[in-house]
Design a protein around this nucleic acid. Structure first.
Lengths: 351, 351
DNA sequence: TTGTAGGCGTTATCAC
DNA sequence: GTGATAACGCCTACAA
């Protein structure tokens, strides 16, 4: 049988209100009875009922996290960090995955609504107008993490990496090494992340007094296939590129793979830099120079943002409260660095 | 303002019980009023309060999932599948990560207890006696997924891959290719998974009339470092090994890396087979032959098991109800196959 | 077919 | 200090 405060009250010969007070360490209870009750509760295996508590408190101490897919290691890492932060603040995480399917997205939001979560975090999604409306109807703080939103929500804030700065850093690393013919392999068309990273690329070129050549911008997909398809395009250029900055690591890895097949030496013939620093990046051959997204920091800051908004009301009042974190350049072999690759950085995938 | 059934009742001019019935599609309500109420509920933006409902129903429609770390792609994949299955059955998932820390493990269980989850899934953990006791105290079905338990729990069931069968398949693949000096690189010492895979290795040798040579069994760690350290040991063998079956993919990948550095050709000088089929496996050079764990199937079956136990009472009555799923050999380049590697299998890591 | 009343396990507001 | 009593939002006998 499940033991409630009433059971404890009976056993202790007091009223259930006294038990409630004793368990919440209310100073209005004599130390003696307090201790007696707390001991009793422990002995009887009492566990407070969060549902009942939320009902009367109006707070569930719960946040919802909507992810597109857990197969993406970036998302998994951020989620891990969110969960850690939530846990250490006494919050628990309800997980909902959408597979980027609009129907499931709104189903997820409805579910979180019914669960009366105190806040919501949305990871790596494209938040359309309809989705945004549903999020708004929750009337709880919403933090978009690495997400692209078409429309500003009433309760919506965001955390993301500085894509422009990252693109700049990556490209500047190549110009500093003396490259002047630097290609940019794009991600999915018209994605704001892609646009921003591209902007950083152009700024770095500009700063190095390199004239921008549209021919050096080749389309991609955001996946490895995009990088593979980019190589032949690069090879057919009248004036060869000596380096390529790719929208993300998967694109870069596709490029690496294609290069190996064609006998193009990396970094000898072509230096390559990616973006994200997924686990794969340190294992490919040559290991990939890239801009690391601070997943841990992003998850933690996003979760703390929700927590803050919970105490401050949390309605978005015009003043933008969006956080931009900085990526860090991780220099490995693919960009022509001379130093040895770092030690193995993880032992993921133990079976 | 949050709208409750009472608000709807007022607006509709009926009692709240009628509203409750109408919303749960109870046949005792006239179709007319039912439709009127349902329309009203929609217009007013009603969302049922799951907490309140659980309180009276005694069921939360919620399961807890305890993971050691989300950084492990195997765990992330299984979790994804669990969430999908839960969602399509109207359940929601509360996530708790433990980082394999005993304190956090029991904290997680307590939290899930307070949340009154209807069932719990534990992923890739070593479930010690203390942990098991806490799980038992929940008095809800517990399914251990790919976990090693020291002690049988009262409400505990399990789902896991056939490690022995997988080890056999992997090794038999090598014997079939004509190898007779086959090494086994172990995982973490004394882990039951390792023991079972090793058992499969021995069975395959036996079946191929190859005498077991203890010198061919070299220690590992379960991580890439284990594989790296294994190579020199293999090279110093008086009678060279021509193939190696590794405890898992990370071990195999470490071995591959070390081989490349030493100029040992794979699969020419040494054929290598792993276990798990993590995403990395198809990207390393040469791509890794391995035994794939059916993560999707495992997650789905584990979740369905919980669901089944929920209707059937769910106390473990002696008759073992443990599920063993089969791994599938994925032949790539590292074992000397002649056919080309498959197309890119995923585009993880879009940033 | 509908309304009334009670209770699920808490916390909070009163009196005493 | 402590004990009744009333919520919180919902479901469900039981009555009408």
């Amino acid at each position: 049988m499940r033991v409630s405060i009433k059971d404890i009250a009976k056993a202790a010969g007091v009223s259930h209100s006294t038990v409630s007070r004793a368990l919440s360490d209310n100073p209005l209870v004599s130390t003696e009875t307090k201790e007696r009750i707390q001991r009793l509760a422990r002995e009887m295996g009492y566990s407070p009922d969060a549902q009942a508590r939320s009902l009367v408190m109006g707070r569930t101490q719960t946040v919802g996290v909507v992810v597109t897919t857990l197969a993406d290691p970036f998302i998994a890492d951020v989620l891990q960090s969110i969960e850690n932060t939530a846990q250490s603040h006494g919050y628990c995480v309800i997980l909902a995955s959408s597979n980027a399917d609009p129907d499931r997205e709104i189903a997820a939001v409805k579910m979180l609504h019914s669960q009366r979560v105190d806040g919501v975090l949305v990871l790596s999604s494209r938040v359309g107008a309809l989705y945004q409306d549903h999020l708004d109807s929750l009337a709880v703080p919403v933090v978009l993490l690495n997400s692209h939103s078409e429309q500003r929500g009433l309760y919506t804030f965001s955390v993301g990496v500085d894509n422009l700065g990252g693109g700049y850093t990556a490209t500047a690393h190549l110009t500093a090494a003396g490259h002047r013919r630097i290609a940019y392999v794009r991600g999915a068309a018209e994605h704001s992340n892609d646009l921003a990273r591209f902007g950083g690329y152009r700024r770095a070129l500009n700063e190095a007094d390199i004239e921008f050549d549209p021919a050096l911008v080749v389309p991609g997909t955001g996946g490895a296939d995009g990088g593979e398809q980019a190589l032949p395009v690069l090879l057919e250029l009248p004036k060869q590129a000596t380096a390529a900055f790719c929208y993300n690591d998967m694109t870069a890895i596709g490029l690496l793979r294609a290069a190996r097949r064609k006998g193009v030496s990396v970094p000898g013939d072509l230096a390559v830099v990616g973006f994200d620093d997924i686990p794969l990046a340190s294992y490919v051959e040559p290991s990939l120079t890239t801009v690391a997204q601070p997943t841990g920091e992003m998850g933690e800051r996003a979760m703390k943002m929700v927590l803050d908004l919970l105490v401050e009301g949390g309605k978005n009042g015009g003043d933008v409260a969006n956080i931009v974190v900085q990526g860090a350049l991780v220099v490995r072999m693919s960009s022509g660095a001379l130093r040895l690759p770092g030690a193995m950085e993880s032992d993921r995938g133990k079976g």
